[in-house]
């Protein structure tokens, strides 16, 4: 079945993520990502570390259990699906994408499926997109010399397949489909969780409050910040600083030029050093 040219995306339901990392493995398999050298992160079951050029899916493990002093780290009740959070993180394929905004070469483009894609043959490795992505999604591939991130398996979509991670997810925590259909699924799931008493459960990126809406959106069991996702107040586009930045520059330029001109003209008008052609190193 070929996919229609309308927004496709992920709905990642963290409430049923079991942290198996099948998504990470499937992603690496399909996209031929060798991965980084294994390291001990001392961070729960996480040995991937972060999203980057080699990790286009990353399962976060967020432990909110009592620490060994007996103090409860998070407010009770710690049950309710909030004691040990897991989330398979990925590029959000933002509707208003910070990376797309700043890319100077147009290597970053929006596909016919409304996803955000890096063209490997256009990217020149300036890394401006890395500085812009608020989710720390994009990494620099040292071997290829370019920026890399999740493509939402663009090649598989063109073949009518679903992305490798969604296909591999055993609990269907990662759901793939047309974004409008996923919205309906997410709304229903949220209602079910709320009815069951999970009051902190919330959708992230379902509406347009975060970057105009995320094509890869999430059901979270706690605040976005807990999952290293900027909340609404912090979900800002880089371009917000364009106008103030240039206005500040122009104002400084004008003041600097006027000050410089005054300094250069004043001295002469005061008649200092007229006809003096010796250098100042004679002092």
């Amino acid at each position: 079945m070929a996919w229609q040219e309308k927004p496709l995306g992920f709905f990642t339901d963290t409430s049923i993520c079991i942290g198996c990392k099948a998504c990470e493995v499937a992603c690496k398999e399909w996209n031929e990502l060798p991965g980084n050298a294994a390291k001990f992160t001392a961070d729960s079951f996480d040995n991937t570390g972060q999203l980057d050029a080699q990790n286009w899916r990353h399962v976060q493990f967020i432990e909110q259990v009592p620490d060994n002093t007996g103090m409860v780290v998070t407010p009770t009740p710690i049950a309710g699906g909030q004691a040990w959070l897991m989330m398979s993180d990925v590029c959000k394929h933002c509707k208003n994408a910070s990376c797309l905004e700043v890319c100077p070469t147009n290597a970053l483009m929006r596909t016919e499926f409304d996803t955000v894609y890096i063209q490997n043959d256009v990217c020149n490795g300036c890394r401006n997109c890395i500085s812009a992505c608020p989710y720390g999604v994009i990494g620099f591939n040292e071997d290829k010399g370019i920026a890399q991130k999740c493509t939402l398996c663009y090649d598989r979509l063109q073949g009518g397949l679903q992305p490798a991670c969604a296909k591999a997810c055993p609990t269907e925590s990662i759901k793939f489909g047309y974004v409008e259909d996923l919205h309906a699924v997410a709304d229903q799931r949220l209602a079910t969780l709320k009815a069951a008493g999970y009051q902190k459960a919330q959708l992230y990126g379902r509406d347009d409050k975060v970057y105009g809406g995320l094509n890869a959106f999430f059901l979270l069991m706690d605040k976005p910040e807990v999952y290293k996702l900027p909340n609404e107040a912090n979900a800002t586009l880089p371009s917000r600083n364009n106008l103030p930045g240039y206005v500040g520059g122009v104002a400084t330029a004008v003041i600097g030029l006027v000050a410089g001109l005054l300094a250069f003209r004043n001295g002469r008008m005061n008649g200092n050093g007229a006809n003096n052609t010796t250098t100042t190193n004679t002092r």
């Binding site: 700043v102 500085s131 812009a132 800002t236 880089p238 371009s239 600083n241 930045g245 500040g248 400084t252």
Partner: peptide, 18 residues
């Protein structure tokens, strides 16, 4: 630098260019 989402740079906002 300011037109990014980096700490410090994007917080410095309008002052950095000047």
């Amino acid at each position: 630098l300011a037109v990014s989402n980096q700490p410090v740079w994007s917080d410095g906002g309008w002052a950095l260019g000047g």
